[in-house]
C-alpha cells in the first residue's frame, strides 16, 4: 500500500536503506532549521539528486552546491516567503513538485500588496482575498478547517449534500460484506463496491493514469510500468490504487475505498490535497480515524467544470 504512505515514510525508508547517504545528507542541515523544514528540504535534495548526475555522495562539488542552493531557494520560498527571479522560480517549482509541506507558513511580501497600505486599489483587494490565511488550529484539526472559497473547488455545502447518499452506501456495503463473509483479501473488491453503488442508484467513476505520466514521484521509485486508478462516486473521492494493468489498479483502488467503510461511519469532508502540483480542495470520503498522513495526489479533479457551469448559468 505504498501509495497511501506519506512522502516522509518513503524518505525515511529510503534513508534507512542507505545509512551512509543519510549521514552525508545530514551534514547539509542548517543549524537554524527546524525538523519540519529540514525534512522537507532533505526530501527536495534527495528527489532531485538524479537530475544532478555529477553529484556524488560524500564528495563536495560545485554541482552539489548548486543543488543545495536550489534546495535553499525552495525552502526560503516555502518557509520564509522569499521570491527569486522568474527563471529560478520556475526551476524550483518544477523540482519541488510533489513534496507535501503540511501547513506551510504564509508570508506577505510587498508583491502581495499587503504592505502597500493607504491606497486601496482594486488589485490590492483581490490579492488580499486570494491570500489564504494561515490556519490557527493545530495540524491534527487540519482536515476540518474551514477554508475560504477558492476560484475552483467544491462548494462549502457539498459535504452535507453528499453525506446522506454515503450513509446509505455505508449500510449497503456493510450488509454486502457480511453476506460475503467479511472484508478480506480474497474478495472481488470492485464488484462489491460497484454493486453497492448501483443498489443506491449511483455509478462509480474510475480514472486511469499510466504511472510514467505522473510527475514528481520520489526519485527512489524506479518502477515505471503500471497504472494508477482513482475511484470517485458523485465526485467524492474514495480511493487510489496501483497495479500492473488497469484492472489490477482498479481492484487495488476499490480495496482502498472499502477500507474506509470498515469504521463505524463514513464522512464526506473537504480536504486539501495535491493535484497537478498545486494544492486544491477536494471532496473526500473518510472514516473517523484521525489521519496523520497526507493524501495521495488526486488524478482527476471534477470541480473545475462544475465551476465553469456555475459561472455560465
Amino acid at each position: 500500500m505504498a501509495e497511501e504512505r506519506s512522502n516522509e515514510d518513503i524518505v525515511a525508508e529510503y534513508l534507512g536503506q542507505n545509512p551512509q547517504l543519510a549521514q552525508w545528507v545530514e551534514t547539509f542541515r542548517g543549524y537554524c532549521e527546524s525538523n519540519k523544514q529540514w525534512d522537507a528540504r532533505r526530501e527536495f535534495i534527495l528527489r532531485n539528486m538524479e537530475a544532478f548526475p555529477t553529484v556524488e555522495p560524500g564528495v563536495p562539488s560545485s554541482s552539489l552546491d548548486r543543488l543545495l542552493s536550489l534546495s535553499m531557494v525552495w525552502a526560503n520560498h516555502v518557509f520564509l516567503g522569499c521570491s527569486y527571479p522568474q527563471a529560478v522560480m520556475d526551476k524550483i517549482k518544477e523540482m519541488g513538485e510533489g513534496i507535501v509541506v503540511v501547513d506551510a507558513p504564509v508570508h506577505k511580501t510587498t508583491k502581495d500588496g499587503v504592505l502597500a497600505r493607504g491606497k486601496r486599489s482594486a488589485t490590492v483587494e483581490v490579492d488580499a482575498d486570494g491570500c489564504v490565511k494561515r490556519a490557527k488550529c493545530g495540524s491534527n484539526e487540519l482536515d476540518s478547517r474551514p477554508v475560504g472559497r477558492q476560484k475552483s473547488g467544491p462548494l462549502p455545502q457539498a459535504p452535507a449534500e453528499h453525506q446522506p447518499f454515503f450513509n446509505r452506501l455505508y449500510k449497503a456495503v456493510a450488509w454486502k460484506l457480511v453476506s460475503a463473509g467479511g472484508f478480506g483479501p480474497n474478495l472481488d473488491h470492485f464488484e462489491i463496491l460497484r454493486s453497492c453503488a448501483e443498489s443506491c442508484k449511483e455509478t462509480l467513476t474510475c480514472v486511469f493514469v499510466p504511472l510514467k505520466d505522473i510527475a514528481g514521484l520520489p526519485a527512489g521509485r524506479t518502477q515505471k510500468e503500471g497504472h494508477v486508478c482513482e475511484i470517485r462516486c458523485q465526485t467524492v473521492y474514495m480511493g487510489t490504487g496501483y497495479g500492473r494493468d488497469e484492472s489490477a489498479a482498479k481492484a487495488m483502488a476499490s480495496k482502498e475505498a472499502l477500507k474506509v467503510f470498515q469504521g463505524r461511519k463514513v464522512t464526506v469532508k473537504i480536504c486539501r490535497r495535491r493535484y497537478k502540483g498545486k494544492d486544491v480542495e477536494d471532496l473526500m470520503l473518510l472514516d473517523e480515524q484521525p489521519r496523520s498522513q497526507g493524501f495521495p495526489p488526486a488524478l482527476s479533479y471534477p470541480f473545475q467544470d462544475e465551476q465553469l457551469e456555475d459561472g455560465s448559468s
Binding site: 543545495l68 542552493s69 535553499m72 531557494v73 526560503n76 516567503g81 522569499c82 527569486y84 527571479p85 527563471a87
Partner: peptide, 19 residues
C-alpha cells in the same frame, strides 16, 4: 547573484517578506 545556475543563488531573493 542572479544566474539560475549560480551555486549561491539562494542568498539573493529579489523580494522577501517583512514581518
Amino acid at each position: 547573484m542572479s544566474s539560475p545556475d549560480s551555486p549561491i543563488i539562494d542568498f539573493y531573493p529579489d523580494d522577501f517578506a517583512i514581518d
